[in-house]
């Protein structure tokens, strides 16, 4: 498990190899496997996934803790399961 001063990542999911809507579906499947309060790291591409996936996770009631720019066209979205 990767750690950080603010959170402990319980699981990671890579959605850079799929397109909408499977991007969000894969992230949603991964977060549903977690316990309440656990944190998921989502590896995603810039562009459409970056626009839609964080918003959809927020709409489901989850909390976005951070968005880390990997500076290679991908990001790591850190989400806490709240719902």
């Amino acid at each position: 498990m990767a750690t950080n001063e603010n959170y402990t990542i319980a699981d990671t999911v890579d959605i850079t190899d799929v397109v909408c809507p499977v991007t969000f579906v894969k992230a949603k499947v991964a977060i549903e496997e977690l316990e309440l309060g656990e944190v998921l790291s989502v590896h995603l591409n810039d562009g459409e996934p970056l626009l839609n996936v964080p918003r959809s996770l927020k709409e489901e009631g989850h909390q976005i803790l951070a968005l880390n720019d990997n500076e290679d066209g991908t990001y790591d979205l850190i989400v806490k399961k709240n719902a």
Binding site: P21, V22, V25, V29, E32
Partner: peptide, 17 residues
């Protein structure tokens, strides 16, 4: 299956469970 059932899984009322 994720792709086939994606429109269901996206729904809050259905989801993975």
């Amino acid at each position: 299956q994720l792709e086939r059932y994606s429109r269901h899984i996206i729904l809050k009322e259905v989801g993975v469970k």
